[in-house]
Design a protein around this nucleic acid. Sequence first.
DNA 1: ATTGAAAGAGTCTCAGT
DNA 2: ACTGAGACTCTTTCAAT
Lengths: 156, 156
Amino acid sequence: MASILNLDKLDLSIVQQLMHDANVSYAEIGKKLFVSAGTVHVRIKKMQEAGIISGMNYRVDLKKLGYDVIAFIGIYLEKSSLYDVVAKDLKKIPEIVRMNYTTGNYSIFAEIVCKDIVQLRYVLHDELQKIKGIERTETFISLEESLNRSVKVAAS
Amino acid sequence: MASILNLDKLDLSIVQQLMHDANVSYAEIGKKLFVSAGTVHVRIKKMQEAGIISGMNYRVDLKKLGYDVIAFIGIYLEKSSLYDVVAKDLKKIPEIVRMNYTTGNYSIFAEIVCKDIVQLRYVLHDELQKIKGIERTETFISLEESLNRSVKVAAS
DNA sequence: ATTGAAAGAGTCTCAGT
DNA sequence: ACTGAGACTCTTTCAAT
């Protein structure tokens, strides 16, 4: 699974730029890194073909779209071997946006985005409790997101 | 904080498209939604000015860049009033990519991205334990990320 | 508010080094 | 492997409706 492709400093610096802002032009990136726009293009294409970079997403302010509640859910399973079947059911709930199979207290760690507390309560109580294999859940409602960034892979 | 701007179905459908793939052209989006590329442009501009949409990020495969370990950290504070000062210190650690102030057991819920377990151990033991105000932490290492998507804001 | 066309900017290709 | 120029595509502006 490790990187087969040898990435040099230039590659990493380009990824760093793109992670921070995907809107900067190849010419601008090149100017900062003292290479031509063509070279930047070749490197990006290479990394896209290797699956290192895969596409772009807009940053969306969910609160402004009316999604005011972000919460994290720690899920205890009856048996951890039930992971696959429970995960499959959880994926059907559109409010659940992320799921990780984790070590520690919880078997599954999920993130959920809801319009309001009423909707959160509905998903937790009516949808989650129906899923077979879930023993119990613990919910952590985010009161404030004070950081959301990408890991630093190279000097910016 | 709620959306002052009245967003209609067209706006939401456009956001939905862009959240899924920021690379589709305005013409393509328009074709799907039966409007011109110009209209798509106007709507996107309006939403950018309103801060609903703010910029683009490339999706990056962190594992292929050598970052194999994603973990979640539940942090207990000595007093929850220490949140601001602890948060400030945590932000200085580049491996920490996300932080939420939460209800429930933990005061702070953080996400961390490391190259390997050695680096994770270093951050947890040497860096985190040095921060004043942290009582103790619980770590959940992700063994598998089985879902990572955006919330559905409109019919796709 | 939406459209269609023209102008501007960026990406992509390729021959040359 | 990098460069620079030309071809191409997309974004952006704008006059008309």
